[in-house]
Computed example of a mutant assay.
Amino acid sequence: MGNIRSVAQAVMKVAPECTVVIAHTPEMIASADKVILPGQGAMPDCMTNLKESGLFEALLVAIKTKPLLGVCVGEQMLFTTSAEAHLPQKSTDCLNIFPGKVIKFDLEEKVQLDGSHFKVPHMGWNEVKQQRSHPMWEGIPDASRFYFVHSYYVVPDDEEYVFGTTHYGSEFTCAVARDNIFATQFHPEKSAQLGLCLYKNFTRWNP
Rank of each mutant, 00 (worst) to 15 (best):
M1Y: 09
M1L: 13
M1W: 10
M1P: 09
G2M: 11
I4N: 09
I4P: 01
Q9A: 15
Q9Y: 10
K13T: 13
V14D: 00
V14H: 03
A15R: 04
C18K: 12
T19Y: 07
V20N: 07
V20R: 01
V21H: 02
I29M: 03
I29A: 00
S31E: 13
A32C: 02
K34M: 03
L37P: 06
L37Y: 06
M43H: 04
D45R: 12
D45N: 12
M47Q: 15
N49C: 13
L50Q: 06
E57K: 12
E57W: 04
A58Y: 02
L59C: 09
V61C: 09
A62Y: 02
T65C: 10
P67A: 03
L68Q: 07
G70E: 07
V71I: 15
V73H: 00
E75C: 14
M77I: 06
M77E: 07
F79E: 02
T80I: 08
T81N: 14
T81W: 10
A83H: 11
A85I: 13
A85N: 09
A85Y: 11
H86W: 11
L87G: 14
P88C: 10
K90P: 10
K90I: 15
D93T: 12
D93Q: 15
N96A: 14
I97D: 03
F98H: 04
P99N: 06
V102S: 03
F105L: 12
L107R: 00
E108N: 13
E109W: 09
Q112W: 10
Q112S: 11
L113R: 14
D114L: 11
H117M: 07
H117R: 13
H117D: 12
F118D: 01
F118A: 06
K119N: 14
P121W: 01
P121I: 05
P121F: 05
N126C: 07
K129T: 13
K129P: 00
Q131V: 11
Q131Y: 08
W137T: 06
W137I: 08
E138A: 14
E138G: 12
E138R: 12
A143V: 13
R145P: 04
R145K: 14
F146D: 10
Y147L: 06
S151V: 01
V154T: 11
V154Q: 04
D157Y: 04
D158T: 09
E160C: 13
E160G: 04
V162I: 15
F163H: 11
G164C: 03
T166Q: 01
T166D: 00
H167E: 11
H167A: 13
G169E: 01
F172M: 09
T173S: 05
T173M: 01
C174I: 00
C174T: 14
V176A: 02
A177S: 08
A177P: 10
R178D: 15
R178H: 15
I181K: 05
A183D: 01
A183L: 04
A183N: 03
T184F: 02
Q185R: 02
F186Q: 09
H187S: 02
P188V: 08
P188D: 05
S191H: 00
Q193T: 15
G195Q: 02
Y199G: 02
R204M: 14
W205R: 07
W205E: 01
P207F: 07
